[in-house]
Amino acid sequence: MAELTLHQTVFALITSLAAFVFVLDLVRRRRLREEYSWLWLLTAGAMVLLVVWYRLLILITQLVGAVTPLNTLLLCAVLFLFAIAVHYSMIISRLTVQVKTLAQELALLSARVERQE
């Protein structure tokens, strides 16, 4: 398993750093709440780490029995996307319950107000 060429390293580093900075900037501009940013930052951070410390990627590749580092990367990418999608479903489930409860409270309250008028 060959090392990365300088060309590949520079490109991969720029891409992953850009992803990291992009997420941070969204949080800075309050377009993304901190509580939903951590999984994205983790993903971008892992990308940076694997580029800088390429031996780690090779080590993981040997550990999971993948053929090439690229397979490992794809596997990681799929797992991260899965985690993020499930994370969203959890948030949506919680929001559904909150919206339901709010709608019920609103209905009960306005019925009470109408009665008193």
Partner: peptide, 25 residues
Amino acid sequence: ARVVRLPFNLGAGVAAQTGYKLAVR
């Protein structure tokens, strides 16, 4: 009848539970 109106359609289960909540209160 006394009427409680949900602001949007939430399904039969939620409508029923709104009634249970009123009954408890």
